[in-house]
Amino acid sequence: MLRFIIRRLGALAATLLISSFLIFAAMYAAPGSPESFLVQGRTVSPEVLASIRAQYGLDDPFLVRYGHWLGGVLTGDLGESLTTRQDVASLLASRIPTTLWLTAYAAVLIVVFGVVVGAIAGLRGGAFDTAVLLGSSVGFAIPTFFAAVLLMSVFSVTLGWFPVFGSGSGLADRMSHLTLPAVALALPAVAVVARITRTAVVEEREAEHVQIALARGVPWRIVARRHIVRNAMLPVTTIVGVNIAALVAGAAVVEHAFTLDGIGAMLINAVQQKDFAVVQAIALVLVAVFGVVNLVIDILYAVIDPRVQLGGESA
């Protein structure tokens, strides 16, 4: 197990290295020079321009610039924003908590509502099951940004239960500010997870070992928990994981819709302003988080399914 984790971490580091190169190269190749943005249409003397280029190392060869940037990244220096002249690392640090809270909130909603509702629908059947099936079909088709607008319209504008904008401070205030965004962000994933969980539970109910456990006189409650739901969690874990990992990028849409000060909204602004230092840094952070989440899921999967042998290790 430990060897597997170390190997996967190594692979993740390699992926990040190549990704960082690709991201940097893409920004380098982008049309439009950064200094023209820096001077923002003002007419400046060639000397000033040269000094700006020198200050940002814009005249160095590509690989030197990449090496410089990478060295900075490894030491926690993500460079300086081209628009605000602020340190990107500290900018990120101030923005990350909002995104973290938002995605964590959404992840909890996905697990609680998706898995629990899907499992109950699969175990109970009947009208509740039909309602869940219908709800998940519609829920899946609602894009996060429309869910955001819809929720805003109903709960903020019409009912006035939740604030429209901002992330709030302090736990209670934050929860109140982030509830609608988290629901919007989680909604399509909840629909998908509920559907998959329900299907997995229904299939597992029919499994011979479940029928046999019942025929052996094991009480239904125990069979439902130990044999049906537990086994159904195998496919569900993968789907939950994929959906939670996708929150990393999906958060940008919701943050933009609710004007939250997270790194997703920051990324969108940076893209529109061609603030490449910020774009690069956030992209790298997102890829890293995405990779870590996926790694955690693989490990979790191996823990709950004894048949999975991690990297050829003998069990």
Binding site: I18, L22, A30, V248, A249, I268, A270, V271, F276
Partner: peptide, 19 residues
């Protein structure tokens, strides 16, 4: 695998940054 390392939406956003 490398492409899989990027969330879908992030890739599209980066493309906008470039193009």
């Amino acid at each position: 695998d490398l492409l899989f390392a990027f969330p879908n939406l992030l890739l599209a956003i980066l493309a906008v940054a470039v193009f």
